[in-house]
Amino acid sequence: MASVTLESTSVQFRGGAYGLRDVDLRVEDGEFLALVGPSGSGKTTLLRSIAGFLAPSAGRVLIGDRVVAEGRRILPPEQRELGMVFQQHAVWPHWNVGGNVEYPLRRARVERAERRRRVAEALELVGLDGYARRDPATLSGGQRQRVALARALVSRPRVLLLDEALSALDEPLRDRLRLELHALTRELGLTVIHVTHDRAEALALADRVAVLDAGRIQQVARPEELLTRPRTPFVARFLSDAAIVGGRVEGGVFRATRHPLQVAAAQPDGDAEAALLPAAVEIRADEAGDGIVCSSLFTPDGSDLVVDWSGLTLRARTIGPRFRDGDRVRIHVAGACVFPRADAAVAA
């Protein structure tokens, strides 16, 4: 395993658009890091820069202590000791399972007996022991993705890169493979960088999550910190579906500009924004309440609600009896994250 470091790394495309801007990031040995963000945020650009498929226009990339990209010095992907698994299984139909997994070893000119031994070892790791002679056409989608994972692991990479590796799979298969992937990477002590559009997957799998927007990292933190102490309104909205309200702090109280909301705010007076996290929104049935349920979705833990609160749309999660669309409710906000206009968050 190895650490991965990006130092002031930027990627600028022809025409002047930036895929990454001044990114500083360090992934520690054996750490599982997830990259999340909206489409076009820079997740895949960052991953491809680490892999060697894109050359940074500024900064440098290191794998362990080895500089793999700096200025015109670019180490090609095959020399970076990486394993990669993509969204599409990319299992070649003209080779059997063993031939697919063996391919990186043949390219590296590994001796035949050693190739066979390591292919068998990799297939056993991903739960496909005895599948070496199987035709890929006879495999399920989940099994083909396991073959792709075995091919990524057979070279004993220092870092494993996953690009939407589970998103093409249906539930509950995807959920099962998440658990197996988590256990396997822990067992092998691998450093893993995982790009996903699935926020729940990122929070469930990763030691830390990096949230990107417009080519910049907005916050890198453990899942519980991202959910309870987001650093910017964007992070609160993207990860937690928080409602963002503009207003002003005066005397330690945030007052919304166009809404009766007031919450405590431990920051200096001035213009600010408050993020109302669903976990902090308390709701109870009340025919005289000033909130109206717009949408109520059943979940195993209760209901996921969208509520109109005097013109403010917010999300809430409840446990117990299910609310119905149109129900009137009383709303209490137990706390909020208040951000000055400079976007420095203070949890209230």
Score class of each variant (00 low, 15 high):
Tyr103Met: 11
Leu239Lys: 03
Ile244Thr: 06
Leu261Lys: 11
Thr196Ile: 09
Leu169Lys: 03
Gly52Ser: 04
Ala265Tyr: 10
Val346Trp: 07
Ala236Gly: 05
Thr191Tyr: 05
Gly40Glu: 05
Gly247Gln: 04
Gly335Glu: 14
Thr185Tyr: 11
Gly98His: 02
Ile331Leu: 15
Arg229His: 13
Leu173Cys: 09
Glu180Gln: 15
Leu212Phe: 07
His332Gln: 12
Pro268Trp: 12
Ile283Lys: 06
Met84Ala: 10
Ala137Leu: 12
Phe298Ser: 11
Ala348His: 08
Leu35Gln: 01
Thr138Phe: 10
Ala58Phe: 04
Asp325Gly: 00
Leu227Met: 12
Asn96Leu: 08
Arg118Phe: 03
Val110His: 08
Glu114Val: 11
Gly52Met: 07
Asp22Tyr: 10
Ser310Tyr: 03
Arg134Cys: 14
Glu171Gly: 05
Glu282Gly: 02
Arg222Ala: 15
Asp129Cys: 05
Thr9Leu: 12
Arg72Asp: 14
Glu78Trp: 11
Arg146Gln: 09
Glu187Asn: 15
Gly30Pro: 04
Asp327Glu: 13
Asp271Tyr: 06
Ala137Phe: 10
Thr185Phe: 09
Gly71Phe: 06
Ala334Arg: 15
Thr257His: 13
Ala288Ser: 07
Phe254Val: 13
Ala120Arg: 14
Ala51Gly: 12
Glu70Lys: 06
Pro157Glu: 02
Pro93Trp: 13
Arg322Ala: 10
Ala165Leu: 03
Arg174Trp: 14
Ala202Cys: 02
Ala274Thr: 01
Ala120Gln: 15
Arg158Phe: 05
Phe53Lys: 04
Ala334Lys: 14
Gln87Ala: 02
Glu224Pro: 09
Ala55Pro: 01
Asp271Leu: 15
Arg21Gly: 03
Thr9Val: 15
Arg284Met: 07
Ala55Leu: 03
Val101Asn: 12
